[in-house]
C-alpha cells in the first residue's frame, strides 16, 4: 500500500512538474511582454520579442530531452568505441579490429542479415495477403482484429508463448508443445527446435513475424481501400482477371506504403533483442547484434568500448533508412 501511495505521489509530481513548466513559462512571458493591450508601438515590439521567445518555450523540453537521450549518446558512442572497457583510455581502433576478427560478430551479423531479409518480407507479404482477403469477407474486421492482436503483446510475453509451442519432451513422454505434438501426430520424430543450429533462427523469426504481420496488414489494408475504385473498374472493363488486377493495378498504386511498412519493420528488426534474449540468449548460433551488444555491456562488469562498437554497426545499418526518411519528409513538407 505504501508503495502504491508513493508511486501515486511520484506520478503526480512528475506530471504536474511538466504542466507547471509549460503554464508557468508562458504566463510569465505574457506578463513580462504583454501583447493584448497598451500603446500600439509597444505592443508591436513586445509581440516581436515574445514571438521570438515562445517557440523555444514550447520546444525547450523536447529539444533538451532529444539531445540528452538520443543526439549526445550517438556522438558519445562513437567516441567510446575508441576507448577501453571502462571508457577511460584511448585504444585507437583496436575495438574495431577485435570486432571484425571475432567469429561471434560474424555469426550475429549473418543472423541479423537473415532477420533483415526474412522478417520484413514475410510480415509484409502476409500482411498484404491478409489485407486483400479480409477486405472481401463480411467478418473481415474480426479476423483483422485477431491477427492484429499480437501487436499488443510484449516480445518477452510472445517468447514465452512460443517457447511453449516449441517445447520438447525427450523419450516417449507425451509432447506438450504444439509443434512437436503435430509432428508426432503425423508420425515424425519430435525435435528440440530451438537448439538446431541455423534453422532455429527461423523459429525465432516466426515470433516477430507473428507480431508484425498485424501492423503490416492494418496499414496496407488502409492503403488498399484508398485505391480509387475507378481504376479497378477500368481494369475489369479492360478484361483483367483478379490476379492481374492485384499485381498490375493495386500493388503498384500502394508501392509507397509497402516501402514504408517494409522500412518500419526493418528498423524494428535491427533493434530486436528481447526475443533472442528470452529464447536462447544467443546460444546455438542464434546471436544477433543487439543482444551481443547488451551482452558486452553487462558481461563481467561490462566492456563499454566493445559494446559501443557493436552499437555503431547497428547505427550504420540504419543510416540509409534514416536518409530516405528525411528525404521523404522534406518532400512532404514542400508539398504543403
Amino acid at each position: 500500500m505504501a508503495q502504491l501511495a508513493s508511486a501515486l505521489v511520484t506520478m503526480l509530481l512528475g506530471v504536474l512538474g511538466c504542466a507547471v513548466y509549460f503554464y508557468g513559462s508562458n504566463i510569465l512571458l505574457d506578463k513580462v511582454f504583454p501583447t493584448k493591450s497598451g500603446p500600439a508601438q509597444k505592443v508591436a515590439r513586445n509581440l516581436r520579442i515574445s514571438n521570438t521567445i515562445r517557440p523555444w518555450l514550447f520546444l525547450g523540453p523536447a529539444v533538451l530531452l532529444l539531445t540528452f537521450y538520443l543526439f549526445y549518446p550517438v556522438i558519445d558512442s562513437i567516441r567510446l568505441s575508441f576507448f577501453d572497457r571502462s571508457g577511460d583510455e584511448f585504444v585507437g581502433i583496436s575495438n574495431y579490429v577485435w570486432l571484425f576478427g571475432s567469429d561471434e560478430f560474424f555469426e550475429s551479423f549473418r543472423n541479423n542479415m537473415l532477420w533483415l531479409i526474412v522478417v520484413p518480407t514475410a510480415a509484409t507479404f502476409f500482411g498484404l495477403v491478409i489485407a486483400t482477403m479480409t477486405d472481401r469477407i463480411w467478418w473481415g474486421n474480426i479476423a483483422k482484429s485477431l491477427i492484429f492482436m499480437p501487436m499488443a503483446i510484449s516480445f518477452i510475453g510472445a517468447s514465452v508463448i512460443w517457447k511453449f509451442i516449441y517445447d520438447f519432451r525427450s523419450g516417449g513422454d507425451a509432447q506438450i508443445g504444439l509443434l512437436n505434438a503435430v509432428v508426432v501426430f503425423f508420425g515424425g520424430e519430435p525435435q528440440n527446435w530451438i537448439t538446431i543450429p541455423f534453422w532455429n533462427n527461423f523459429f525465432l523469426m516466426i515470433i516477430l513475424i507473428w507480431i508484425q504481420t498485424g501492423f503490416a496488414m492494418v496499414i496496407l489494408s488502409a492503403a488498399l481501400r484508398g485505391i480509387p475504385d475507378e481504376t479497378i473498374e477500368a481494369a475489369v472493363l479492360d478484361g483483367a482477371n483478379g490476379v492481374q488486377i492485384f499485381f498490375k493495378i493495386m500493388v503498384p498504386q500502394i508501392w509507397g506504403t509497402i516501402a514504408v511498412v517494409w522500412t518500419t519493420i526493418t528498423i524494428l528488426v535491427l533493434k530486436v533483442f528481447d526475443i533472442v534474449l528470452a529464447m536462447t540468449n544467443g546460444q546455438w548460433d542464434t546471436q544477433v547484434l543487439a543482444n551481443q551488444m547488451f551482452d558486452w555491456m553487462f558481461r563481467g562488469g561490462g566492456d563499454f568500448g566493445r559494446g559501443a562498437v557493436v552499437a555503431i554497426v547497428i547505427m550504420v545499418l540504419v543510416i540509409p533508412i534514416m536518409i530516405w526518411n528525411i528525404k521523404r519528409a522534406n518532400a512532404e513538407m514542400e508539398g504543403r
Binding site: T35, K36, A40, Q41, V43, A44, R45, L47, R48
Partner: peptide, 11 residues
C-alpha cells in the same frame, strides 16, 4: 490614419 504594419491582427 495609423500605420499598422507591426500591429497584431487583434489590435
Amino acid at each position: 490614419g495609423q500605420v499598422v504594419n507591426d500591429i497584431p491582427p487583434a489590435l
